[in-house]
């Protein structure tokens, strides 16, 4: 499995109460479990099944992923920012492997 690279876009600043757009992308093949290899054997399922975004420890957005999410899962979603702080992102796959990323935001 190649290195997993997470890419996050969060604005550096926002005004208090502003609704911002967050984009997240992570490299993962999202093996569905529905494919077979060239000898006809089923390739076991291995997907990211959980993505969460918290802000200063409080849940903002999360999702439970199934096999129908495309490889290299991408989510664009919103967050209401009331104070400066840190967004914390986590992705967890079927083997329990956890990928994490953090982004700071300031209030202007």
């Amino acid at each position: 499995m190649a290195k997993a690279k997470a890419r996050i876009k969060v604005p550096k600043t926002a005004s208090a109460g502003e609704i911002i757009t967050i984009k997240s992308l992570v490299n993962h093949r999202m093996e569905s479990g529905h494919r077979t290899d060239k000898d006809g054997r089923a390739i076991p399922r291995k997907i990211i099944n959980k993505f969460t975004c918290e802000f200063n420890g409080k849940p903002v957005f999360s999702c439970d992923l199934g096999t129908g999410i495309a490889a290299n899962p991408f989510f664009e979603f919103k967050a209401r920012v009331m104070e400066a702080g840190t967004f914390h992102f986590t992705w967890i796959d079927d083997e329990g492997i956890k990928i994490e990323a953090r982004k700071e935001i300031d209030i202007v």
């Binding site: 190649a2 876009k9 093949r29 093996e31 290299n72």
Partner: peptide, 13 residues
């Protein structure tokens, strides 16, 4: 599967 990544404009912005 772990090598090629195609990103359209709505993803890379």
């Amino acid at each position: 599967p772990d090598i090629i990544e195609w990103l359209p404009p709505d993803i890379h912005g």
